[in-house]
């Protein structure tokens, strides 16, 4: 058992445990904090896979920016467990069935793929380093990259239009 293996298992337990806590917490603010912990654990996995850029961007964008917005909304609406209305019993049932089907489809799709046959290779490969990633993005995939930036721009313009008074 090397340090890398120990770290892998630690991060895995942390990620799954805090993901479960996101669902089971009664308090929405606690859920958000557990979700942040999940993102950190996943970023740790990225670092083990030698994808430092992805790891840090995951922290900046998801744990840093998006979760702050979640917290904003929850804090301002002052949600707490008492104010959540009782849900319809059938709604829960439908949720379980649709979630289960999604899980089934995902497992079926991943079962025979190449990825599942290989062990995860840790601390190897350098495609995740920022230099190589930048070269790939701006040489091989420059068109999709630019098009997705236009998508972001249109989302920003939309937000500004909605946020404008009168």
């Amino acid at each position: 058992m090397s340090i890398t293996h120990l770290l892998f298992w630690f991060l895995t337990v942390l990620a799954l445990g805090s993901a479960l806590m996101v669902i089971f917490s009664k308090n929405p603010v606690h859920s958000i904090l557990w979700l942040i912990a999940t993102f950190f654990a996943i970023s740790g996995h990225y670092i083990l896979l030698n994808a430092q850029f992805l790891a840090i961007v995951n922290i900046i964008v998801y744990a840093g920016a998006i979760m702050v917005l979640f917290l904003f909304v929850v804090m301002l609406m002052n949600l707490n467990s008492a104010s959540i209305p009782l849900k319809n019993k059938w709604l829960g049932f439908a949720g379980v069935i649709s979630g289960g089907s999604l899980l089934l489809v995902l497992t079926a799709a991943l079962k025979d793929t190449e990825i599942m046959r290989n062990d995860v290779m840790m601390k190897t490969g350098d495609i995740g380093l920022i230099h190589n990633l930048g070269l790939v993005l701006f040489k091989d995939y420059v068109l999709p990259f630019e098009i997705s930036s236009v998508l972001f721009l249109s989302a920003m313009v939309g937000a500004v239009v909605i946020g404008k008074k009168d």
């Binding site: 603010v29 904090l33 942040i36 430092q52 850029f53 840090i56 961007v57 922290i59 900046i60 744990a63 840093g64 920016a65 702050v68 917290l71 804090m75 380093l129 920022i130 230099h131």
Partner: peptide, 25 residues
Amino acid sequence: DINIGILYVFGVVSMGVYGMMIGGW
């Protein structure tokens, strides 16, 4: 000396608001 030094600084700065927000809430 990590090769993403500045981004690391950004990650920590973006975490900085949580202390304030959680404490205030």
